[in-house]
């Protein structure tokens, strides 16, 4: 049996070798990537370290996500932001701060501001993480990135309302995790990059736990993102994703 297994594996390897001439479709890879991220309920705690001209500071938050449409975030640190909550339902965003006891709707232009002074905008957070919905994908190369063999995919907008017209992503061939991403303007100019520094296995999935985001037009060292904990398939009551829960 063992032998057989070994033989099959050999054949598989051969097949893989042959397939290398014919790369898998971009769409297929993207689906795997989306699958790995998953569209289920998640609860996570993360820390963002923002490197500015005056030194660095960090912001810690806990998020509840349901599918791609609903998210709820509560800030845990620093002290002055503790208790600030954000609710996103589709493309709408509300913010609640305990000190003011106000629920404020964030309108279009405010969404484009950077989050907590980072290299990310609220919109970056709010976009549909399901890339297959937004982009046509094409494999354009194979490259090794951080000692991992990757497919390089070129993503082009399907034409919807979308922030980045095209992207280039480096997808780990085995783990189907996007290891590096470049986001481009319509003109093809590089606007933002993000690079995965560390990946961990959490609940049978490969999850990036340390990433660096950078706005390429700005000077500076960018923003680091650390995932401290992640619970997948979490049980989140629907009531979390209501405006009422902001005040709780």
């Amino acid at each position: 049996m063992k032998k057989l297994c070994g033989f099959t594996f050999l054949i598989f390897l051969c097949a893989a070798g042959c397939l290398a001439q014919e790369w898998p479709s971009g769409e297929w890879i993207l689906e795997r990537v989306d699958e790995n991220i998953g569209a289920d309920n998640k609860v996570s705690i993360s820390e963002m370290v923002i490197h500015g001209r005056r030194g660095s500071r960090s912001v810690k938050s806990k998020s509840w996500l349901q599918g791609t449409e609903k998210s709820f975030t509560e800030y845990l640190a620093p002290a002055r932001d503790k208790g600030t909550k954000m609710l996103k339902l589709e493309d709408q965003l509300w913010i609640y701060t305990p000190s003011t006891d106000r629920t404020i709707k964030i309108s279009g232009h405010m969404l484009r501001q950077s989050v907590m002074g980072s290299d990310l905008s609220y919109e970056d957070f709010m976009e549909d993480p399901d890339l297959t919905n937004l982009y046509e994908a094409k494999v354009i190369a194979e490259e090794t990135f951080k000692e991992r063999s990757c497919w390089v995919l070129e993503l082009t907008s399907k034409g919807g309302d979308i922030a980045y017209h095209s992207r280039k992503i480096w997808v780990d061939k085995e783990r189907f995790v996007s290891m590096k991403e470049e986001r481009f303007a319509k003109s093809g100019k590089l606007l933002k990059t993000f690079v995965v520094e560390k990946i961990e296995r959490i609940q049978n999935r490969w999850i990036p736990t340390h990433m660096i985001f950078k706005d390429e037009l700005k000077s500076g060292k960018g923003t680091e993102f650390f995932l401290e904990s992640l619970e997948m398939n979490a049980d989140i009551p629907d009531a979390v994703f209501t405006k009422a829960s902001l005040r709780k």
Binding site: S157, Y164, A185, K186, K189
Partner: peptide, 8 residues
């Protein structure tokens, strides 16, 4: 459409 564009 809200898509970023940048040019020189």
């Amino acid at each position: 459409k809200g898509t970023f564009d940048a040019r020189d």
